[in-house]
């Protein structure tokens, strides 16, 4: 899957999310989840790291999933100390769980696994605003630089005995830290703009090579993907 064009992978990820979100049958969603795992395997996602990412996302929906069986009325499923869970609620929770995980896993495999410049050029190839692409590229470029800046500020605080606690001093210090990081990042923006001007930047970025034509591998991937989507659509609604 490494050779597949960025545009194709982004479109595939969107299509995957649309179809998966529209599906409501648990058996189909389970099949979709399997195909997402398959995609992850094709993309050679690191196993432990990917599972960690999925679990941290599941943390976000934990409350929703845990409460749904009890708040949805329907056929009795199980109950304890006055609370009763319904079968319908359990199904709804399961549906959300599978959809969210399948969508995220497919996104990680199809989009996030690409090198970042490839994501950007894929978005550009799909007609995304040029300025937005430049913003995205510059942001990715400077995250590490700004993170080091943050580390230095943080170390300077620790060197003077700062320990996060539950008090106003802690929160004020964090506010200052955030404010200082924003000030430094704005200063850096000025210097980067100056560097651009020094190299002849006059307000527009030079356009570099047009997008490559889709290769045979791209078409093969697309056809397989469309077939899979068609299969799911027929299964759910046919």
């Amino acid at each position: 899957m490494k050779g597949v064009d960025g545009r194709v992978r982004i479109i595939a990820a969107v299509l995957f999310a649309v179809v998966t979100t529209a599906c409501s049958r648990l058996d189909i969603l389970t099949a979709i989840m399997f195909s997402a795992v398959l995609l992850a395997w094709f993309a050679r996602l690191p196993v432990v790291e990917t599972i960690k990412k999925l679990l941290s996302m599941d943390g976000f929906i934990l409350i929703l999933i845990a409460t749904l069986p009890f708040t949805t009325t329907g056929t009795h499923w199980f109950g304890f100390s006055g609370f009763t869970a319904s079968v319908e609620g359990g199904q709804l929770a399961m549906e959300i769980f599978l959809t969210a995980n399948a969508c995220m896993l497919s996104f990680l495999a199809l989009v996030a696994a690409m090198p970042h410049p490839a994501i950007a050029s894929g978005l550009r190839g799909l007609g995304c605003s040029k300025n937005l692409i430049q913003i995205l590229l510059l942001t990715i470029r400077y995250i590490e630089t700004l993170r080091l800046e943050y580390q230095r500020l943080r170390t300077a605080m620790q060197a003077r005995g700062f320990q996060p606690r539950n008090n106003l001093h802690t929160w004020r210090s964090y506010g200052y830290l955030a404010g200082m990081l924003i000030v430094r990042s704005l200063d850096r923006a000025d210097r980067v703009l100056a560097a651009m001007k020094c190299r002849g930047f006059r307000g527009s970025f030079p356009t570099v090579a047009e997008d490559a034509k889709l290769t045979k591998a791209d078409y093969v991937f697309l056809w397989w993907f469309f077939l899979a989507v068609l299969f799911v659509v027929v299964w759910q609604w046919g």
Binding site: N131, T139, Y142, L146, P164, T170, Y174, D190
Partner: peptide, 29 residues
């Protein structure tokens, strides 16, 4: 994006990076 002239792109990008980093800071409460 209409307000982002190309001269402002570095500023917008740095603020994106900074706000991304800031959301990673966890604060005890």
């Amino acid at each position: 994006l209409k307000q982002v002239t190309s001269e402002k792109i570095p500023q917008v990008a740095m603020l994106s990076a900074a706000s991304f980093l800031i959301t990673l800071i966890h604060i005890p409460i």
